[in-house]
């Protein structure tokens, strides 16, 4: 079993529903995003277009972050998910620097979203799950997976551009769609062997 994700860029419209659903589900403190969309443009007028690259953690098989951690606080689980053990993490941030996808963030402080106002009731509950001075990252919403649910970014997507599943199972919808769409990981040249694949668009 190796969890993986396919993102069909021909379908993605760059709306960031995924990014906000991630925040909604994980309750990340202000300034911390476990998911992002890189927006950019290509071409010169009048042949110019918007482009979008949604980026959860790539859950690399050959994860640079794991190697960068001096104390083994980053672990790769048998299901392929790369996880930070918050209680172990000493906050050296070597992994943040090592990740070529900018998928990790260091919690310098736990900030409120309404900056100058008291903490909201939602944040009061959710912020307990974060420890100042540690590194955080996307885990494909592993608590949701435990309940048989897909990651929040997958289930909310209005263009249904994501497929989640088992990369090790050649018969899974995910594996078949990757093959059919000739999907590739982002920056394959880095040889990190990510679990996230993209159909170019």
């Amino acid at each position: 079993m190796r969890y993986g994700m396919l993102i069909d860029l021909t379908k993605c419209v760059g709306c960031n529903a995924c990014t906000v659903a991630c925040r909604n589900h994980n309750g990340t403190p202000s300034g911390i995003s476990l998911h992002k969309i890189m927006k950019y443009e290509v071409g010169k007028f009048p042949h110019s277009k918007m482009k979008f690259l949604p980026m959860p953690c790539m859950q690399c098989e050959n994860a640079p972050c794991e190697k960068a951690c001096p104390i083994g606080a980053t672990v790769k689980k048998s299901n392929g998910i790369v996880e930070v053990l918050a209680d172990k993490c000493m906050g050296c941030r070597g992994c943040v620097a090592a990740c070529p996808y900018d998928s990790r963030q260091f919690v310098w402080e736990i900030k409120n979203y309404y900056e100058q106002a008291p903490v909201t009731l939602f944040e009061k509950r959710k912020q307990k799950e974060f420890q100042k001075g540690t590194v955080v990252k996307c885990t494909f919403c592993q608590k949701r997976l435990e309940h048989g649910l897909e990651p929040a970014c997958v289930s909310t997507c209005p263009s249904q551009c994501r497929i989640f599943g088992d990369l090790d199972d050649p018969g899974s919808e995910l594996s078949k769609a990757i093959a059919a769409g000739n999907a590739r990981p982002f920056r394959e040249d880095l040889e990190t062997n990510p679990s996230v694949y993209y159909i170019n668009g």
């Binding site: 529903a17 906000v20 925040r23």
Partner: peptide, 22 residues
């Protein structure tokens, strides 16, 4: 306390929500 708002798998949105809805 509201801890999560998500789309239901019924019409008209069939589980999805937009960034605002999220």
């Amino acid at each position: 306390v509201v801890v999560k708002v998500e789309g239901r798998e019924v019409p008209p949105n069939y589980g999805s929500l937009c960034p605002r809805g999220n």
